[in-house]
Amino acid sequence: HFGATRFVLNFFLNYSNLVYEKLNRPTGYHEWAKLLTRLKKCQKYSWLKEVNSQTLQQSLKDLDNAFKKFFRKQAKYPRFKKKKSRQTFRVPQHIQLYIKGDNKKYGYIFVPKFREGIRVRVHRNLPEQFVIKNVTFKKTTTNKYYVSIVVETPGILLRSNSTEVLGIDLGIKHSVILSTGQKYSMPDLSKFEKRLKRLYRSLSKKQKGSRNREDARLRLARYIEKISNIKEDWIHKTTHKIVSENQVGKIAVENLNIKGMLRNHGLAKHIQQQSWYKFMTTLGYKAKRLGIELVKIDRFFASSQTCSICGYKNEEVKKLRIRKWTCPNCGTVHDRDINAAVNIAQYAQ
């Protein structure tokens, strides 16, 4: 299934490139789906019949979405999938989940074209009433297998009655600064850099196709996965703490131009380590669960330069080295980041 969906995506990405190059016209999902049906009738590609047909169609839909995002300038041009990279396939219907035992930690997933149920370990308790919409099987670069189950539930969305606003400023020295004065810092990842460089060098020296190269690739992939897990664990714990401990109606953040900020070569590395986009995405859906509105304010609002007490704008605070400053108008001493978070909350209010 992994190989077939990868082949279909690569085949039709190449087909789209050739058609555009020779005939100067775009292609889309409906044309690909018709061609896929004809492709499976050919003896050369008859092995595609062994795979669930809807799974192959989902691969085409993913490619179609990738092209749409590219034309909307939301992503780069679609790339060919490699066998050694992360593999996925999605099953949209006819799925059964059977969980055995009192502790509900183990079970089986039954999907079309698989002769037997796939044994799974359940990491999260499922709701009492749910309908499975689709499942996505994933194989990581470290050869670990996961399945994500999308379910529909008759859950009740909680609504916050509070009118208070929590402002959040995103930074580098401290990753997250709240208008309440709390600061959260992502674990220091610089200590992993030295070994990461050594593993990259070790991989580059190995002969292509050799067993030693595969071992080196796995060591590197496991180390990258470890760093990624540390970041993701911190993001989930921090966002959960923010939405559960602050009884507010709105959470306000700046609508940062992260892509533009990464062009600053002096700060690009530090900005990338903070994973601001991942943080805001996670915060958004966790806030929505509790009925809290996430507000993104104008990116050009001078939150750091404005005094949160009297509204005086101090142009000198543009310099990032200034961490504390005194307002020339009212004499209030400000912590740069906390003042910015308070201004964001006031602006959203």
Rank of each mutant, 00 (worst) to 15 (best):
R72Y: 08
L18Q: 14
E116C: 15
H30F: 10
V131W: 11
K105R: 06
V120N: 03
R119T: 04
L36W: 01
L35Y: 14
S59V: 05
K82Q: 04
L39H: 00
K105F: 14
W47T: 14
E31R: 14
P92F: 07
F11H: 12
N125K: 06
F130W: 07
T55Y: 00
V19T: 15
Q57N: 03
V19I: 10
L36R: 00
N24K: 15
R90E: 02
K40N: 03
F70K: 01
Y146N: 11
R115N: 08
Q87D: 10
N125P: 05
F137R: 00
I99N: 02
V51I: 10
R86Y: 07
L18P: 10
L23G: 04
E21W: 10
F70L: 11
L39V: 04
I109L: 07
L39T: 09
Q93H: 03
E21V: 11
N134E: 14
Q58N: 10
H1Y: 12
N17E: 08
K61S: 10
L63F: 08
R119S: 04
L126T: 01
K83N: 09
A75R: 06
F2G: 13
S16G: 11
K138M: 12
H30D: 04
K84E: 09
F114R: 08
A75D: 08
L39D: 02
P127Y: 05
N17V: 03
D102H: 06
T5Y: 10
I99E: 13
D102W: 08
P112L: 07
P112N: 13
R124G: 14
R72A: 07
Q129V: 15
T141Y: 03
E116T: 12
V8I: 14
N103D: 09
R121H: 14
P26I: 09
L56F: 02
P78S: 04
D62P: 03
V122S: 04
K105P: 04
V19Y: 15
N52G: 13
Y20K: 09
K34H: 14
V131Q: 08
Y98S: 13
K139E: 11
E50T: 08
K34P: 08
L97T: 06
V120F: 13
T37C: 01
K61G: 08
N143I: 07
L60K: 00
S59A: 06
Y77N: 01
I99K: 03
Q129E: 11
K113F: 11
K49N: 08
